[in-house]
Design a protein around this nucleic acid. Structure first.
Length: 817
RNA sequence: GCCGAGGUGGCGGAACCGGUAGACGCGAAGGUCUCAAAAACCUUUGCCCUUGCGGGCGUGAGGGUUCGAGUCCCUCCCUCGGCACCA
């Protein structure tokens, strides 16, 4: 073999050699039979990348390396590790890039995928290239469409009108992220709202389960908290306020029904449907003008821009059902149609926002809760929002605590049919319609007779046609709506002429189930095989960025729960273990093209090798916190691997056999323990530091190592630097791959034990010296040993010792009088 | 505003359960080897005072608990990330 004879470490040669052998020998891939029979399956998942034209950046490599280290570590401990990778290639990113460059996405994506594949192979990930996924391949999105149909059949998909951000110049729908303070991020035109019929998945039906399962998940705490905050459940009541002069009532959601006696006015969202009915003729013009102004703002700007509250009086009144008195009805943009009922009972005395509004428009502020030491009619100079105190000015409820009053008031109003207990969520149903081209068509046919009819499953996939002009237009519908020979189809139910749904689905739907597909890509006739799914899922370890803490992870959980309820999978939580990694920054700032501080990994990998680059990235800082990229820093890990090589492959002669040095052997076992614990906890940086420390000790003073001192070290290094580890393992005489068989070294506590310990000697808590003593030395002997130290003895001379604190093998503290 | 993470040498970062702060690495200085360079190896490297011995000060700021605090408690400041009028 060419490599084997070379005595110098040349990373490029070693890495290409082993990447070739892994590929040839199928080291990292599973056959269908192996997937069926794996005895200790471990599904190691990482978030699949969006294959951009720029290629993999350091951030991707960082994330994948960290996950790969964990996978290789599990494998060396004897698990059958399945580590797949794929491409999340649909979506607006590719579409916009294609529009800009004029390259059709159907050409762009395959070439990007090819480039990503090359880079992923080059970084030495343990990927199973026989089980990849590309969300834009018809044999993948066929099953994305299938999934939509299952949700539809089970009443979890519905079409309804919803507002979207619309840029009148670009003539396109914009995602919230594309709207910057009320303007289109591309052209700066003020964004409008439009109402469009769109498909929604009813994730809110699962809100309680999504919330209540969280404590049982072994996830990064930050991620669980983000999900909790995103769903945000609030319990309260919906209360009816009869609108005077009409037959209708305005329903308002509140979490504080106990404060109803303090509700001195109501506020409706400007879009509220009852608005026309309550507005008086003399106010109509002003109300319309305000409504118009609000409509011109997109949802994001409306929530961000105005700190000062604005609003107008409608001229209408409702009856406060508790006091029986009429209260004025206003509209204001701080009330959102999308939450609760789109109407609030304003309680300015006990809600900060209502207080601000009432102050600005001179509306009455009444106290209905008195805190400790406060009187019933003490004026309020800020809203009293706390749920402690006693009710006042509240008729028969005076004297109750807010909690008691909540129950009593809701009970009494419910009896009159004016209230009912209610739970609200911040979480909204998931809008999956995209009026765009680059996505899987939603598999529905609209028929005038039969309504929305699902495409029969055997007709899937509904293939996205190749369309040269896929620019969005003024119509507010997908570019597919211009392709009449595609959308005109007979109704699957009645056969009459009908029309395909021309919207495509959200990319998050593609990624909400990809982990189910990986182990089953051998099957063309089913999305996921029952037997294989039972063996491999739920995912054992999922490592990814916290930018997906909410959406992707929440949608995946929802899909898994829905499939579980349909009886299609056994689990309801897809990821039992999730860890969020940190971000790579540079000079204290996030890498971005606009800052010009982006690192392109390819030249670095060419120059130093993938092993060095991997090791360097993992050494930067704690994996879960991220790290600061420094150009010169790579020389540390590079030197370490070169020294490791030279230690195992001496320039002259051969590595000797023989007994290891006793001190080194003890250190080796402590290193094994530390590296094992640290990798398990994803503390990669300190694991690497420990290996460096050990190698430094092995080579101290230019000494030559013996085999027993370095063989285990080669194994410890393997998860981080797999190629060099393979090569050295091979040169140490092993025929099989270091990753075949459980080669992770065992920690032997007996060998790790030391006979001596260093004791810190303090006087009054200040360090005055250290002494080396036999392990487990008792206090009396330790004191004697310390007193023998000149510096210690001098300070103790003639002083009274009030107390001695002795922590065996650690410290001895003399407290003087 | 709310929630979350964090603030330690010139830099990235270590530090178990409160027990020698600064592991490991970068950078810097000096040296060995070499025609030279690279690589490798050796020594030094928190700050201040001191020729030296030695001493003092040091983990965002201030206070507290303790024999002992980077670590625990209180008050405050700053940075980063997320959510943001959710009734």
């Amino acid at each position: 073999m060419s490599v084997a004879s070379e005595r110098r470490y040349d990373p490029g040669t070693v890495e290409r050699e082993w990447q070739g052998r892994w590929e040839e020998e199928g080291t990292n891939s599973f056959t269908l039979e192996e997937l069926r029979t794996a005895e200790r399956p471990f599904y190691n998942l990482m978030m699949f990348p969006y294959p951009s034209a720029e290629g993999l950046h350091v951030g991707n490599i960082y994330a994948f390396t960290g996950a790969d280290v964990h996978g290789r570590f599990q494998r060396m401990q004897g698990r059958d590790v399945f580590e797949p990778i794929g491409f999340d290639a649909f979506g607006i990113h590719s579409e916009n890039f294609a529009l800009r460059t004029g390259v059709h996405p159907m050409e762009l994506i395959p070439s990007n995928v090819a480039n990503f594949t090359r880079q992923l192979r080059r970084m030495g990930g343990m990927f199973d290239w026989d089980h990849t996924v590309d969300t834009t391949a018809p044999d993948y999105y066929r099953w994305t469409q299938w999934l939509f149909l299952q949700l539809f059949r089970h009443g979890l998909a519905e079409q309804k009108e919803a507002p979207v951000n619309w840029c009148p110049k670009d003539m396109t729908v914009l995602a919230n992220e594309q709207v910057v303070v009320g303007e289109c991020e591309r052209c700066g035109t003020p964004v409008e709202q439009r109402l469009i019929r769109q498909w929604f998945l009813k994730i809110t039906k699962y809100a309680d389960r999504l919330l209540d399962n969280l404590p049982g998940l072994d996830w990064s705490d930050t991620t669980r908290k983000a999900q909790r905050a995103w769903i945000r459940r609030s319990r309260g009541a919906e209360i009816s306020f009869p609108a005077i002069g009409t037959e209708m009532a305005v329903a308002a959601f509140t979490t504080r029904p106990d404060t109803i006696f303090g509700s001195t006015y109501m506020v409706l969202a400007p879009e509220h449907p009852i608005l026309d009915a309550v507005t008086s003729d003399d106010r109509r013009e002003e109300v319309e003008a305000y409504r118009e102004r609000t409509r011109a703002m997109d949802l994001v700007a409306r929530q961000k821009v105005e700190k000062n509250k604005t609003g107008v009086f409608t001229g209408g009144y409702c009856l406060n059902p508790a006091t029986g008195r009429p209260i004025p009805v206003w509209i204001a943009d701080y009330v959102l149609m999308g939450y609760g009922t789109g109407a609030i009972m304003a309680v300015p005395g006990h809600d900060e926002r209502d207080f601000d509004f009432a102050t600005a428009y001179d509306l009455p502020i009444v106290r209905v809760v008195a805190g400790e030491g406060e009187g019933a009619d003490d004026p309020l100079d800020i809203a009293y929002e706390w749920p402690e105190g006693r009710l006042v000015n509240s008729g028969g409820y005076d004297g109750l605590s807010p909690a008691e009053a909540q129950r009593a008031i809701v009970d009494d109003l419910s009896a009159q049919g004016l209230a009912e207990p209610r739970v609200n969520y911040r979480l909204h149903d998931w809008c999956i319609s995209r009026q765009r081209y680059w996505g899987p068509p939603i598999p529905i046919v609209h028929c005038e007779e039969c309504g929305a009819v699902p495409v029969p499953e055997e007709e899937l996939p509904v293939v996205l046609p190749r369309v040269e002009d896929f620019r969005p237009d003024d119509s507010g519908v997908s570019p597919l709506a211009r392709v009449s020979d595609w959308y005109r189809v007979p109704c699957p139910a009645c056969g009459r002429e009908a029309r395909r749904e021309t919207d495509v689905s959200d990319t998050f739907l593609d990624s909400a189930w990809y982990f189910l597909r990986y182990p089953s890509t051998d099957f063309a006739d089913r999305p996921f095989d029952e037997e294989i799914t039972r063996r491999w899922l739920p995912v054992d370890a999922y490592i990814g960025g916290n930018e997906h803490a909410v959406l992707h992870l929440l949608y995946s959980r929802f899909v898994a729960m829905a499939l579980h309820d349909m009886g299609l999978v056994e689990f309801e939580e897809p990821f039992t273990h999730f860890r969020a990694h940190g971000l790579i920054i540079r000079e204290g700032a996030k890498m971005s093209k606009s800052r010009g501080n982006v690192i392109i990994p390819d030249p670095l990998i060419e120059r130093h090798g993938a092993d060095t680059f991997r090791l360097y990235l993992m050494f930067l800082g704690p994996f879960m916190a991220g790290g600061d990229y420094q150009d010169k820093g790579i020389s540390g890990p590079r030197g370490f691997l070169h020294r490791l090589w030279e230690t195992v492959v001496p320039r002259e002669g051969e590595l000797r056999d023989g007994a290891p040095d006793a001190r080194l052997e003890a250190l080796l076992h402590r290193t094994i323990r530390k590296v094992t614990d640290d990798i398990a906890a994803l503390h990669y940086n300190t694991a690497i530091a420990a290996m460096m420390e050990y190698l430094n000790a092995v080579r101290a003073g230019g000494r030559e190592a013996v085999r027993a001192e370095v063989e285990a070290l080669v194994c410890l290094v393997a998860p981080f630097a797999p190629h060099i580890a393979e090569e050295l393992w091979h040169r140490l005489g092993h025929a099989e791959s270091i990753f075949e068989g459980a080669n992770w070294p065992a920690y032997d506590p007996a060998k790790a034990a030391t006979r001596e310990s260093t004791l810190a000697v303090q006087i009054d808590g200040r360090l005055r010296g250290t002494i080396t003593v036999a392990k487990g030395l008792d206090e009396e002997a330790a004191v004697a040993a310390a007193r023998a130290e000149e510096g210690v003895a001098r300070r103790l001379e003639g002083r009274e010792i009030r107390r001695i604190v002795h922590v065996p093998d650690r410290l001895l503290n003399f407290v003087l009088g």
